[in-house]
């Protein structure tokens, strides 16, 4: 006797995979520069997660809260950059990867993006988020460069992002005159503005567990990249000169009529021997 069996297939929706690139930066715009070497003096300046990156991470965590997602953070930096990965754990990420190797040292944005792309070739993802730019360099180049190396569509200056639950993202992109609304299919790369959201605080329970979790430390051998593209060798940028702007003294404010104002300005210019 034949037995027929009806198989009921229920499509299991794949959990979305998000990777967020984050960077540790000095926590101030008043960074001092060593006048002799032209490099940043980092001593005594606390380090933080770059604000645009933190908003990118918040965007990922909101998608996780609302629709479910597996969120990975990745950073390239010296051993102390471990702190922002622990912070990311305490905010709720699932996985953290720390790219650190002497071969990566001295990288400009191009070499950095090559190293990150090399690591990202080893990770499956539907959405890659980076911050628009880091406050210690303000270049806004790394995110777009990664997209180019990986040959993925990219949308920069993101304010908002929604996912249809299948494979399409609806994005709101900030442009000078207003906003652009875009639909992009996964996988893709986006760069996020810090104005997109207010990042959550670390959770106390998450902080307690943050150092119990494993940060995966990857070096050159763990990633897929041509060594000539890395570190100083792979960095075409050379810094011509770096200098700190001198402090201006506090200004004086006069609320007077135009004629009187002209008189005051002329008097001041004469005092400083700019006019005779």
């Amino acid at each position: 006797m034949d037995t027929t069996c009806r198989v009921l297939t229920i499509p299991i929706k794949k959990e979305m995979k998000i990777v967020v690139c984050i960077k540790q930066v000095p926590d101030t715009t008043e960074i001092k520069i060593d006048p002799k070497t032209g490099t940043l003096i980092r001593d005594g300046v606390p380090s933080i997660m770059n604000p645009d990156d933190k908003s990118g991470l918040e965007m990922a965590l909101q998608l996780k809260d609302e629709q479910g997602a597996h969120v990975t953070v990745i950073t390239m930096g010296p051993p102390q950059a471990d702190l922002i990965l622990r912070e990311a754990f305490a905010m709720g990420v699932d996985r953290a990867i720390h790219l650190t190797d002497r071969k990566f040292a001295g990288a400009d944005t191009l070499a950095t993006s090559h190293a990150l792309a090399g690591a990202l070739r080893k990770i499956e993802f539907d959405l890659l988020i980076t911050g628009r730019q880091a406050i210690d360099g303000d270049t806004a180049q790394v995110g777009p460069q990664i997209a180019e190396h990986l040959d993925l569509p990219q949308v920069s200056y993101l304010e908002d992002l929604k996912f249809d639950g299948d494979k399409t993202f609806t994005m709101k992109r900030h442009i000078e005159e207003g906003y652009q609304m875009l639909e992009v299919e996964a996988p893709c790369v986006v760069t996020v503005l810090s104005s997109a959201n207010t990042p959550r605080y670390m959770n106390v329970g998450g902080i307690v567990d943050a150092y119990q979790k494993e940060v995966e430390v990857w070096g050159f051998n763990e990633i897929e990249v041509d060594e000539k593209n890395l570190g100083l060798k792979g960095s075409p940028t050379s810094v011509h000169k770096a200098f700190a702007r001198g402090l201006k003294p506090a200004g004086e404010l006069y609320e007077v009529e135009t004629d009187e104002a002209v008189g005051i300005i002329i008097k001041k210019l004469k005092e400083k021997f700019i006019l005779n």
């Binding site: 959550r200 605080y201 670390m202 959770n203 106390v204 329970g205 998450g206 902080i207 307690v208 567990d209």
Partner: peptide, 18 residues
């Protein structure tokens, strides 16, 4: 929301386990 009301309470009772 972020666990400050339960810092030293063990996780098994819903605290932060701090």
């Amino acid at each position: 929301k972020i666990g400050i009301m339960g810092i030293p309470i063990p996780k098994q009772y819903g605290g932060a386990g701090g």
